[in-house]
Simulated scan of single mutants.
Amino acid sequence: MDLEVRHLRVLCAIADAGSLTRAAAALGTTQPGLSAQLRRIEAMLGGVLFARGRAGVVATPFGELVLDRARSVLPGVDGLIADTARMARRMSVCDRVRVGSVGAPLLGRLVLAVKALLPEAEVTARCQHSPVTLLDELAADRLEAAVLGDHPGRRLPHRDGVVLHPLATEPVFALLPAAHPLARLDEVPLAALLDEDWAVPRPDGDGTREYWSSECAAAGRRPYSPYEAEGRPLVELVRAGLAVSLCQATFVEVPGTAVRPLAGNPLWYRHVLAWHRDGPLARHGDEILRRLTAGYEETCAATPAYARWRARHDRRGTP
């Protein structure tokens, strides 16, 4: 009988649990079966690995040597398994593609791009408020691509194996009740908004709320935010005349709301396309990026407030 990787995992499980009974439960086996397996491993290696006692088991000096080597070997083995699995998926015919998006206008464009490039694949999509959650799912191979977003000074964190490619950077606009006096202005001073009650998203991994707050503080003071909401509930609070808020420049006005640029463009938002470096979309990354960029331009042209802003401003100065 030769020593196998699974034997090293068993030894580490016993050491971590400190008890054969607890280790057996964690491994999904019985305590007598695990004891017999441990005896066979000890016979292979030629020494006693654990001292048994009433309180459980403790590694012997010989066992400590084996455990040190096992714990140095297993991460490399796990990495090899994960890397080869990702490469095998990349080389195989892709029959399912999972994509995600934050609350941005590009999810439909991403799905269309994937369907055009991989017409035989089933495409599924899901949305999350936090881009960090989607980023973690990409790194864990639970998504193949996603549209994310971040802000200056609060860039998305690095994740091994995930490619991040900026799509566009746009200003953050004011979201107002349609009947609000500030809605009559072409551009709204951020300081003027600070006299109003705000609706803000809950604190999350993307740092949006913290970014808004820090920039408002630089303009004079932090906003009073009695309402914590996001998505449709936030829009409804604004439409009811209870609060003001901020939104992406590509946000589509709904009846009862008004979207206006902020004077001086103090806040910015960046759209980012992400995909797994070893995933089935890796070889299509550049083409998906091209299609999403074209789609973004179409979205901008169809968003009146942002189209007017773009006509008046030189976008080369964006962060």
Rank of each mutant, 00 (worst) to 15 (best):
263 A>P: 00
204 D>F: 10
120 E>W: 08
182 L>I: 02
315 R>H: 06
244 V>F: 07
177 P>W: 04
163 V>D: 04
28 G>E: 07
20 L>K: 07
36 A>S: 14
32 P>A: 09
23 A>F: 06
21 T>I: 04
215 E>R: 15
308 R>K: 12
13 A>F: 01
38 L>A: 03
173 F>M: 12
91 M>K: 01
26 A>N: 09
161 G>T: 06
133 T>L: 11
248 Q>I: 00
62 F>P: 00
75 P>Y: 03
251 F>K: 15
226 P>F: 05
149 G>R: 04
9 R>Y: 08
87 M>T: 04
104 A>K: 01
116 A>W: 08
123 V>K: 15
12 C>V: 15
176 L>I: 10
258 A>H: 12
10 V>I: 12
310 R>H: 00
288 I>N: 07
310 R>M: 09
28 G>A: 11
3 L>T: 09
226 P>L: 05
29 T>E: 06
170 E>K: 14
103 G>N: 14
106 L>Q: 02
275 W>H: 08
167 L>W: 01
44 M>C: 08
286 D>L: 13
177 P>A: 05
69 R>A: 06
205 G>Y: 14
129 H>W: 10
279 G>D: 00
245 S>K: 06
65 L>C: 06
128 Q>F: 15
92 S>Q: 04
245 S>Q: 05
311 A>D: 13
29 T>M: 13
134 L>P: 07
48 V>L: 14
243 A>D: 09
279 G>A: 11
55 A>E: 12
